[in-house]
């Protein structure tokens, strides 16, 4: 899919947060929002958005997937078409693959051409978060600090369908204090695969344990990735196997949400990775910020 090049930098973008981040990992959505806003981008969040329909598509239920694809196009289509946003950004390589590549398959039928063309126009301005930061905004350093050992797992759709790999690696390399280490057999699939994880749970578990062993061998405290779906699977395995490494979404690192140290000094209370910053903290921070503003 050919991506648009922008003659003037985009100023307003629609955030497609993805249903999993919305419901399970709000911290990832908050991080994406704040990372974009810090670059001077105005973020719009269409409240009507739900799921891109990938689970139905991957399972072979195309009629059902088309229902959700149409809904996505109805929610995001007009905003892009009337120019109120210049791009759609999502913190997920997999969901961007669905909307940018697989909608094209869903609307292949000759009578669906108008929707197919709309999907293609949207695809040309839809970006995964790190792709948008690096390729479109030219950001290579988000000025985050994290003392600890970090590795990177390239999620399959991001790597092989979108061809995004350098961008997240560049951003991680710029994190102050982080020691970035290589993950053995990094490009091997983690074994998530959507419904595969339940339908073929035994194979999925074996693949996940292989990934977890490699994570243990890498010596990393955290493994960053650009999809919360693979992250859920990998974390579930790491926790079950009692391996001392945690999977995090890259936006949480880039936005400084893990704190500044993964191994705190003795005197400080230990930082807990299990509890990423949630909305309550953000509201408190906002309220504080508002208080300061009021004093001006």
């Amino acid at each position: 899919m050919q991506k648009s090049s922008f003659s003037t930098p985009p100023r307003r973008v629609a955030l497609f947060v993805t249903c999993m981040a919305d419901m399970l990992y709000p911290g990832v959505g908050i991080a994406a929002t704040e990372l974009l806003e810090r670059q001077g981008i105005e973020v719009v969040f269409p409240m009507e958005q739900t799921c891109c329909g990938q689970p139905a598509f991957n399972a072979g239920y195309r009629d059902e997937a088309r229902v959700l694809a149409r809904r996505f196009l109805q929610v995001f289509g007009p905003m892009v078409e009337n120019g109120s946003v210049q791009a759609i950004v999502a913190p997920s390589g997999s969901c961007v693959t669905m909307t940018s590549h697989f909608y094209d398959v869903l609307f292949e039928d000759s009578k669906e051409q108008p929707l197919r063309q709309l999907a293609q126009r949207l695809a040309s301005v839809t970006f995964e978060l790190t792709e948008f930061l690096v390729d479109v905004l030219g950001v290579t350093d988000t000025h985050a600090r994290l003392e600890g050992t970090v590795t990177y797992h390239p999620c399959c759709h991001l790597l092989r369908e979108l061809g995004v790999d350098e961008q997240p690696r560049k951003l991680l390399a710029a994190v102050d204090g982080a020691q970035v280490v290589e993950l053995p057999d990094a490009v091997d699939c983690c074994g998530f695969g959507g419904l595969f994880a339940v339908k073929n749970a035994g194979i999925s578990g074996a693949m996940g344990r292989r990934k977890a062993d490699n994570l243990a061998r890498s010596g990393a405290d955290v493994v960053a990735m650009c999809d919360v779906s693979c992250m859920t699977h990998i974390n579930g395995i790491l926790s079950r196997e009692k391996i001392d490494c945690r999977a995090v979404h890259i936006a949480e690192i880039l936005n400084g949400q893990l704190g500044s140290r993964l191994h705190p000094p003795e005197e400080e209370p230990p930082m807990t990775l299990e509890r990423p910053r949630r909305w309550q903290d953000a509201t408190a921070a906002d309220a504080a910020a508002k208080g300061e503003k009021g004093g001006d």
Partner: peptide, 18 residues
């Protein structure tokens, strides 16, 4: 059978946003 699952967030992203 093979892995743990995290609980859903008590407050969703959209609630934070609103």
């Amino acid at each position: 059978d093979h892995r743990d699952f995290p609980p859903f967030a008590k407050k969703s992203f959209r609630e934070w946003w609103e």
